[in-house]
Structures are given as C-alpha cells and as structure tokens.
C-alpha cells in the first residue's frame, strides 16, 4: 500500500493513543458507569477484531461467533457459580481449551461447505447452543442467567479488573495484529482473494480456514469470559444470534479492510447505543437503518472512508505511488 514504514508508524501511534485513552479512563472519572462503558468497548473491541480475522481478512462470514463468546462467558459463570470465585481464572483457561476443541470439530463440519452455507450453518449451531442454554434451566439458569460473578482477590476491585481487561484485550489485539501481518495472515488474505491460486501455491485452503476459525473463536471466547467479570453476570443473550450480529455490524461500521476498523466500530457502536439506545426502545430500527445506509453508500466503513478522504486531500502523504 503506502510507504510501509510510514504506515506502520502511524498505526503504532494510533494504537498508542487508543491505549492511553483507555488507560486514563479510571483516572479522569470515578463514575463506575463510565468505567463499565469503557470495559464494554474493550471487550467488544476484541470480539469484533477477532471476528474480522474471519470475515475481513479471510472472507468467511460467520454468523455464529456468539457461540464462542457465550461459551467463554458460561464457563466462567458456571464454574464460579458452582465452585466459587477462586475458579474464575482457571475457568477462563478451561473455557478456552473447550473452545479450541469445539471450534475444531465444528469447523471441520461447517468449513467444508463454504460461502452462504458457512454463514448459515454457523448461525444455526450458535442458535442450537443458545436453545440448549435457554432450556437447560437446572444447569444454566436458563433465561435468568447467572448473577454475582465476582472475580477473585484484588480483581474484585472494579478498577483493578478494568486494567486486567485492558491488558488482556490489548495483548490479544496485538497478537492478532501480528498474525494479520505474518505469512499466515498473508495466506489468509490470499485465500479470500483467490483460493484456487492458493491451492496452486501448494497450500491447503480449508486447513488455513480452519486455523483462522479456531483463532477467531479462541479470542471471541476470551472476550466473553472477560465480559462475565465486567458485568458480574451472564445471560443467554450472549449466545443469541443478535450478539453475533452486533460483532458483524461493528466491523462493518468501523471498516472491514483496516485491522483496527472493527475496534473503532465497536467503540462508536457502543457509544451511540449508550446515548440513543437508552432513550428509545427502537434501537434496532435505528442501527438497522444506519447500517443499511452504510452498506449501500459506505461499504468501506468509517475508518475506510476517513482514509479515503485523507488520501483525497493529501495526495503526497497518502498516495499509493511507490
């Protein structure tokens, strides 16, 4: 694209600014509510970025990442509920191991069929998990969810937990970013653009799709398990299809083709929802209409369009010429 080093420096400084802003939140405000909103942005940001590894980078539109998000949340919620608060961290680890296994097996099943089938089958299986959770009241608490999930030790302090989330989210995003720009990431982008040619490079398309599916699911689950501590509660809605849908909307809102687009999308989405959604019960109508306009007029998302404007105004700074 542009001058590689320049691009990398500007991306690095952007991330530094973002991290700084989030690190300062508990210092500039004591409002528990605002810290909670910031935590939501962080967790959803990770969820959206992990989702975008699938769609934006590899071209696999999953409508079922809520399955893993919810699995992460429920493994924490259930273990803390049944075994006590000390199990909070082991539960995260156990949930992640479970997700590795589940995403491997389910991935084998749904990746074979590709395209729209892939999208719809991921949706169907996530809805299956939702139904099981919803109906298995004795074990999962069904529609009531699980309340009172308190992280152990010093993590019980809300501000400490906030920084815990912040560190894990940004380390995860950093790992995903490294992946996106590694040879593996390059193969994934090539898989999206020309799978036949990838096969003729001697690489297996489906195997790489399975790998990224597992990576994406892993980090979705991590986001879900962090969320259990943020709100101290979990709910079947975390597995519901609208949760997968929100990760998709956030990614498109921010921009699919930029690595940090989905994170920005998540932040904007949550801030609008926080301000407008609180005032009307017709939030889906509003976000649906906004996204409809985005899809038709600005498919590159906010970040993509901003970059385009920047390139338009400052040809010398943002041109693609070598």
């Amino acid at each position: 694209m542009t001058n590689d080093t320049a691009r990398r420096i500007s991306a690095t400084s952007l991330w530094t600014i973002i991290i700084l802003i989030f690190a300062l939140v508990p210092i500039v405000t004591t409002s528990a509510y605002k810290i909670n909103v910031a935590s939501h942005i962080l967790v959803w940001g990770l969820f959206a970025v992990s989702f975008n590894m699938l769609w934006g980078i590899t071209g696999m539109l999953s409508f079922g990442q809520a399955l893993y998000y919810g699995l992460g949340a429920y493994s924490v919620g259930l273990m803390v509920d049944y075994l006590g608060s000390g199990w909070f961290l082991p539960a995260i680890a156990l949930g992640l191991v479970m997700v590795i296994i589940v995403s491997f097996l389910l991935g084998l099943l749904v990746i074979r069929v590709g395209g729209v089938y892939f999208t719809m089958l991921t949706l169907a299986f996530a809805q299956l998990a939702w139904q099981i959770t919803f109906k298995w009241y004795d074990f999962t608490g069904g529609d009531d969810g699980i309340q009172g999930i308190i992280p152990p030790g010093i993590l019980e302090n809300r501000i400490v937990y906030y920084y815990f989330v912040l560190v894990i989210v940004f380390v995860s995003i950093w790992i995903l970013k490294r992946m996106a720009y590694s040879p593996f990431g390059l193969i994934l982008r090539c898989v999206q653009q020309n799978p036949a040619r990838v096969r003729f490079l001697g690489r297996r398309v489906r195997r790489n799709q399975l790998r990224v599916y597992m990576v994406s699911s892993f980090f979705a689950a991590l986001a879900g398990s962090l969320m259990a501590g943020v709100d101290s509660s979990i709910h079947t809605d975390m597995l519901f299809w609208t949760t997968s849908g929100e990760a998709i909307l956030m990614s498109v809102l921010g921009g699919l083709n930029q690595f940090f687009g989905p994170f920005i999308g998540a932040a904007i989405f949550i801030l609008i929802e926080d301000n407008i959604g609180a005032r009307t019960e017709y939030w889906p109508l509003i976000i649906g209409s906004i996204m409809l306009v985005m899809v038709i007029l600005f498919p590159k998302g906010i970040v993509g369009e901003v970059l385009r404007l920047k390139a338009w105004f400052g040809k010398n700074g943002g041109g693609r010429q070598p």
Partner: peptide
C-alpha cells in the same frame, strides 16, 4: 515452508 509462521511480520 514458512507460511505457518503466525507472529513474525512478513517483512
């Protein structure tokens, strides 16, 4: 055989 390097930049 370097396509399975996950964390090193392509450069």
């Amino acid at each position: 055989g370097e396509t399975r390097k996950y964390l090193r930049a392509v450069d």
